[in-house]
Simulated assay, not measured.
Amino acid sequence: MNKQKEIIKQISDRELMANFYLSQGILLILSLSLTPFFFSSFWEVFSLFHFERVKQVLIIGGGAGLLVVLLDLVLIKLLPASFFDDGGINERLFTNRGFWKIVWISLLVAFCEELLFRGVIQTNFGIVIASLIFAMIHVRYLNNKFLFVYVVLLSFLIGYIYKITANLAATFMMHFVIDCFLGLYIYIKNGRTNTDIQK
């Protein structure tokens, strides 16, 4: 973990964002590459997004996301800081972004990860496989037992939301709400003010 922190400190902001976009691009390409093997048509996986089911998207997806955010904030206050130490990646990723960039990062992550893990993997291999793979690709959590267990449980929860709704738009919304609100929390906690909101 200390080695990871040193690496994160040494890389430039440009390198950090390049790695971020590369990782999300890999997930997206993987999703699109696997789609023809598991669906009858290339576009079928996108039909799993049902944004027209507003109640599912906003109440179930958004509501579950907000509950996770509230739980996170309570745990952050109650538990030692070391429990949430991911090696400094989230701090670097969100601290200097500004409001709209945090929204964009959260949208991109939610779309790419939900498309692959719930859309392609869970639809074809089930919630257990999808949840475990989802947890494993978050390699920065592997050195922190609490964070790893937490992300496994969170993945199962997102997978359950997909199971009961059969709607990727609901899990996309849940994932987006979690990442966006916690990203904004990091941004504000580290001394950013409302005057930066347009950045």
Score class of each variant (00 low, 15 high):
F94M: 08
T123K: 03
R92Q: 09
V109R: 00
E114C: 00
Y185I: 03
V128C: 03
Q24N: 14
W100L: 13
F49Y: 15
L67D: 01
L184P: 00
L182Y: 07
V57N: 04
G62V: 11
N19C: 09
R118V: 01
I29A: 15
H175E: 02
V177D: 04
S131C: 06
G62W: 09
G62I: 12
K145N: 13
S31T: 08
E6F: 07
S33V: 15
F146M: 07
P80V: 09
A81Q: 08
K145W: 15
D86A: 11
S131Y: 04
L116Y: 02
L30F: 11
L16R: 07
L71F: 10
L116K: 02
N143E: 12
Q10L: 13
T35I: 08
H175N: 03
G119N: 00
R53M: 02
F84K: 01
L32C: 12
E113Y: 04
D179G: 13
G63N: 10
M174N: 09
Y141M: 13
F181D: 00
Q198E: 13
T165G: 11
I161M: 03
L58G: 03
T123A: 05
V120I: 15
F111V: 02
I26S: 12
A18R: 14
R97A: 11
N144D: 10
Y160I: 12
N143C: 05
S33G: 14
L67H: 04
L67E: 01
N194I: 14
N190T: 06
P80N: 08
F99P: 00
F20R: 06
L182I: 15
N143K: 14
V69H: 12
V103R: 00
S31R: 01
M136E: 10
V54S: 01
L132W: 09
G87R: 01
V128Y: 12
I186D: 02
A169F: 02
L157T: 13
T193H: 05
E44W: 04
D85F: 01
I178N: 09
F181N: 06
T195C: 00
Y150F: 14
V57H: 02
M17D: 11
G126C: 12
V177M: 05
V149P: 03
G126M: 12
V69N: 11
Y185K: 09
K199N: 13
K145P: 09
I188Y: 14
N144L: 06
F99H: 02
N194T: 12
I89Q: 04
K189Q: 14
G119Q: 00
G183K: 00
S31H: 06
I137T: 06
S23M: 13
F84R: 05
V151N: 07
I158T: 09
L157V: 15
R140I: 11
L32N: 11
H175W: 05
H138G: 10
L27I: 14
C180D: 02
K77M: 09
K3M: 13
L108S: 08
K5L: 05
S41L: 05
